[in-house]
Simulated scan of single mutants.
Amino acid sequence: MSSEVRFTDFKSDKQPTWCPGCGDFGTMNGMMKALAETGNDPDNTFVVAGIGCSGKIGTYMHSYALHGVHGRALPVGTGVKLANPNLEVMVAGGDGDGYSIGAGHFVHAVRRNVDMTYVVMDNRIYGLTKGQASPTSREDFQTSTTPEGPKQPPVNPMALALAAGATFIAQSFSSDALRHQEIIQKAIEHDGFGFVNTFSPCVTFNDVDTYDYFRDSLVDLQDTDHDSSDFDAAKDKILDSSKEYMGVIYQEEDSVSYEQQHGVTENMSEIPDGAPDDAMDLVREFY
């Protein structure tokens, strides 16, 4: 860890308005600690967030930040990273923001493998809009708008990521502070798109997927013989509906980020207006 930067340096002077006990507190703390442990500081960190309870995180962290529109955090994060590859870019979202309206952007961000970290605060409900079923809610999860449950299987975000060609897939739990930090750190250190689905319980609207449920049900992969470099083993874990796993599920150890593959190395803010530049052409390909 850098002797000059502490995780508290990433805390802004804004007080979170999340409900007391919300899992997002632990998720954010782990992100800040991981950033400090990997030698980053607020001056070289950019946090992008979407809409929902998770969207507030950029306000509560002291760094460069942008609070985008619903489901569009990943395209913004991609643009930021390609415009200035020297920045540490972290994108934060929720299960609604990321796996519903943002699902298309998620798949394409995964396959591009831009070197940034995506942390999804998965509470399996729409918390900000008062408790509707989300893409990851259980098929029989009863809410005010789905009194008999959604009656459709939940989205498996890790399966989506693996099918799209992800080079780093992990799952963490906001209440397990040390493991959550370690997992986020590994995602930051990964050369490419680091995806972490974080169980972040909603204490107000979800009385099923609770802290106690995850403590009792999660299987930590570091306590097993799981080989995260084994694609087939990762697929088996991801498709195993009988268990919930925590840890790095899959990592392509020889991953090469988009920037490295295409020579995106310059900070575009330092490129004179009108100057030809291959990196600018690469950014234009996305839009």
Rank of each mutant, 00 (worst) to 15 (best):
94 G>R: 02
117 T>M: 01
204 T>N: 07
24 D>L: 13
192 G>S: 08
143 T>K: 07
285 E>D: 13
62 H>R: 14
112 R>P: 04
158 M>N: 14
287 Y>H: 14
84 N>G: 08
177 A>N: 13
169 I>C: 05
94 G>W: 06
244 E>Q: 15
113 N>G: 01
92 A>R: 04
187 A>F: 13
195 F>D: 05
223 D>T: 11
146 T>L: 09
16 P>R: 01
148 E>H: 14
79 G>M: 01
174 S>K: 10
274 G>R: 01
116 M>N: 00
138 R>W: 13
57 I>V: 13
44 N>E: 05
236 D>A: 15
238 I>L: 11
197 N>T: 00
76 V>N: 10
22 C>L: 04
14 K>E: 12
128 L>F: 06
97 D>T: 07
80 V>L: 08
169 I>R: 01
159 A>C: 10
195 F>G: 04
88 E>T: 15
105 H>R: 04
141 F>K: 05
274 G>Y: 06
228 S>D: 12
168 F>M: 02
189 E>P: 09
164 A>R: 11
68 G>M: 01
151 K>Y: 13
46 F>K: 00
125 I>L: 01
194 G>Q: 00
80 V>C: 07
247 G>Y: 10
129 T>K: 08
218 L>F: 10
207 D>K: 15
66 L>D: 01
47 V>L: 12
109 A>I: 09
171 Q>C: 11
154 P>N: 11
139 E>K: 14
223 D>P: 01
20 P>M: 02
269 S>I: 09
21 G>K: 00
50 G>D: 02
238 I>S: 00
266 E>T: 07
110 V>T: 08
43 D>M: 11
112 R>D: 01
250 Y>I: 10
184 I>F: 13
132 Q>D: 05
8 T>S: 13
140 D>S: 08
69 V>T: 10
166 A>E: 04
279 A>F: 12
24 D>H: 14
110 V>K: 09
124 R>G: 02
135 P>K: 02
229 S>Y: 10
184 I>C: 14
118 Y>V: 03
56 K>S: 07
45 T>D: 06
281 D>K: 13
128 L>G: 02
128 L>C: 02
100 S>D: 12
17 T>W: 08
146 T>A: 11
268 M>L: 15
149 G>A: 10
16 P>G: 03
81 K>N: 00
158 M>L: 15
156 N>R: 04
286 F>R: 13
264 V>D: 08
240 D>L: 03
271 I>F: 12
159 A>D: 15
1 M>K: 11
147 P>G: 03
201 P>V: 03
271 I>Q: 06
81 K>R: 04
273 D>P: 11
195 F>H: 09
29 N>W: 14
157 P>L: 03
85 P>S: 02
122 D>Q: 07
272 P>T: 09
117 T>E: 07
84 N>V: 00
140 D>I: 03
225 D>R: 12
230 D>Y: 09
217 S>C: 10
98 G>K: 06
